[in-house]
């Protein structure tokens, strides 16, 4: 899996370097242009990835180190993504409460009262902190709250 990850970075590096070569190496005044640094970085990244891949292939991989609780990590990541997606739909406060309820009942099952208390009180506290004290502007969603 580590090899796949490095290969993915290599693919991105190839794309980056391709676009870096589309940029001009020198500016109109004859100085180093916007393409100079990206070309150096892109070529360096390709070379580093190829070297890391070669070393990885020789070492025989790290599958044994990649055993962990994938299920909970993936579910939590999906919930976080869903939370971001819901921010502009439900509004900050409601999305926070929905996310906390889902995440707490997944990670901390069987403790209904504790989960309900945390899932409501913490978002309200964060909402008050960001919206009123810091004036930071929490997304209002499609149906803004009356407060």
């Amino acid at each position: 899996m580590k090899r796949v990850f490095i290969l993915a970075i290599l693919a991105l590096a190839l794309g980056y370097t391709y676009f870096a070569f589309e940029l001009s190496f020198l500016s109109s005044t004859g100085r180093l242009g916007p393409g100079f640094f990206p070309r150096v970085i892109g070529l360096g990244l390709i070379a580093s990835c190829l070297y890391a891949l070669a070393v990885e292939w020789r070492s025989g991989g790290t599958e044994a180190q990649e055993r962990g609780l994938w299920g909970v990590a993936v579910r939590t990541a999906l919930l976080s993504g869903l939370f971001v997606a819901l921010l502009n739909v439900l509004g900050g406060l409601v999305a926070m409460i929905v996310f906390m309820l889902a995440a707490l009942f997944m990670l901390n099952p069987g403790r209904v009262l504790q989960n309900l208390a945390v899932a409501f009180l913490l978002p309200i506290g964060i909402y008050v902190l960001f919206e009123f004290w810091l004036n930071a502007g929490i997304p209002q969603g499609m149906l803004p709250l009356p407060v």
Binding site: T76, F99, M100, L107, N108, Q114, V118, F130, I138
Partner: peptide
Amino acid sequence: ILAPAVILVCTIGTYS
């Protein structure tokens, strides 16, 4: 309990 709280603060903090 801490983990969902951290995700909450990360997300709202970034948005703000």
